[in-house]
Structure formats: structure tokens, C-alpha cells
Write a protein that binds this DNA or RNA. Structure first.
Lengths: 122, 122
DNA sequence: AATCTAATTTACGTTAACGTAAAGGTAATC
DNA sequence: GATTACCTTTACGTTAACGTAAATTAGATT
């Protein structure tokens, strides 16, 4: 049940909250990463849209391209359909998982090196 | 003590080992991320250069820009000099550490979401 | 001597992710 | 009714990180 009285946000509200420019948000929309409603010509963002924006920004922080983020979002949105399709999705998920595990390792290594460096500086 | 008989590598050797193009390696050199020796006009990479290349690639995997990687490398290379300089370095290290911790969190969140999604697909 | 093979430099091209005007619409406020 | 605030679209500009092609060099092989 979607509450029609649910709180909504304007583009500048969101841009301020997440410290990005409206231009970026519009860009994400152009890239089909988010699809706000319109009231007249103005974009209106629901809580769901806000969550999606957070997801986008989280993706960016771990170095995903917008194309990769779109892929992930598409996975979320895909209706549990064909068996063949599902297989493909599971494959992609596994690939992502591997990349993320690698990243975890890389981060751990880098953190250690930073600590070493810090010691050396004292 | 640097062993002058130490094993060295050509640019294509390294490019094959790490599955990148020679162009990329030359580009990193242009950006002052690596400085191989020359024998005649040809680049010759020592083991140390190889390690540095690995560091670069690791940085890339966690989403660092070449500029950020250069900053980190510079920190490594900086001789423990002025007290003021050292303070600045320690600051930068701390900043990096914070960003990396954030990334760890983001990755954990993403991994969880992937798992949820996987469950949903079954 | 000619032909590979692997390297070099120079330089223009490409893609992603926005930045940055410019020109205009609408609704509230002075 | 004019200004202000906030939004819109269109479109060209910018930066990073290489890709790609052209012209050249130098050593090894046929």
C-alpha cells in the first residue's frame, strides 16, 4: 500500500542532504537510475526514490560506474521471471560478490600499509 | 643493497602478467606513478617497479583515481622530514583511513543486499 | 640485405560523469 | 506588477584514463 500522503522531496532538498548537485541527480535520471514523479514539470521524489539515490551514492563510493550501478538496480527490479534469466542474474551476482571480496582484501591491505606508514612517521 | 643482477621486466612482460596494456603503464609513468630505468630507449622495470605497479592496480580496484594513488605513493616516498609536514601526512592518512572504513561498510551492505536478492531469486 | 619483433614518441580520438551557461516557466512575495 | 526563488530543458565544455594510429628505431633472424 503506497500512502499518497507520504513525504516527498524536491531535487534541491535531496541535493543538499547528500551534498551533490541537482545536475548530478538529473544525470542519474538520464541514465535511468532513478525516475521521480512529476507535478507539472517539477520532479518530485518519494522516500523510495530517496533510498534509491542512497544506493546510487553507495555504489559510487565503492567505485562502481553508473553503468554498473544500473545493472545492479536492474537486478533488483527484475521480476522473478524465466529460469534462464534467473540463472544469468545469479551469475552476475556471483561475479559482483567476487569483485567485492577482492575489494575487501585490497582495503585490508591498504589499511595495514597505512598503519605501517603511520608508525614509521613517529 | 641493490643487487644489479636482480631480475628485471620489459613493459610487455608486465602488461601481460597484470592484463593491462603497455599504454596504461606508460600512462602511469607520465603521471609520475612509476619511473623505470632505461637501457637505451627501452624501459626496464625492477622488482621494486613491479611492486609499485601492483600498488597502483590495487588502488584502482578500490576506486582510487591516479591522482589519489600518486598522493599515497608520495606519502610512502616522503623522507621523514619536517614536523609540520609529518602532521599533514598523518592527517591525510587519517582521512584515507576514514574513507576506507566507509568503503568497508558500503561493501558489507552491498554484500548483504546481494545475498537477499539471491534468496529472493530462489 | 631484408624482414621480423618489440620497443619508442607524438598526437589526436573516445567515454564517463558531470560542470556550466543560457533561456525560459511558475508561484509566492514585496 | 515586478522581483525573487526554485524549477525546467538544451547544449556545449571539461577532465580523467586511457585507446588507437602513425612514423621511427634497434636488435635478432632468415
Amino acid at each position: 500500500m503506497q500512502n499518497p500522503n507520504e513525504k516527498t522531496y524536491s531535487i534541491t532538498e535531496l541535493s543538499k542532504e547528500f551534498e551533490i548537485t541537482p545536475r548530478s541527480i538529473r544525470h542519474y535520471e538520464q541514465e535511468s537510475l532513478i525516475s521521480p514523479k512529476r507535478v507539472g514539470s517539477q520532479r518530485v521524489y518519494t522516500k523510495g526514490d530517496r533510498v534509491r539515490l542512497q544506493l546510487i551514492l553507495r555504489g559510487k563510493r565503492i567505485g562502481f560506474s553508473l553503468a554498473e550501478i544500473r545493472e545492479i538496480i536492474t537486478m533488483y527490479d527484475s521480476p522473478s521471471g524465466e529460469k534462464k534469466q534467473t540463472e544469468l542474474l545469479l551469475d552476475k551476482i556471483e561475479q559482483r560478490r567476487q569483485a567485492l571480496k577482492q575489494q575487501q582484501q585490497d582495503i585490508l591491505t591498504t589499511l595495514k600499509e597505512l598503519t605501517e606508514l603511520e608508525q614509521r612517521l613517529k
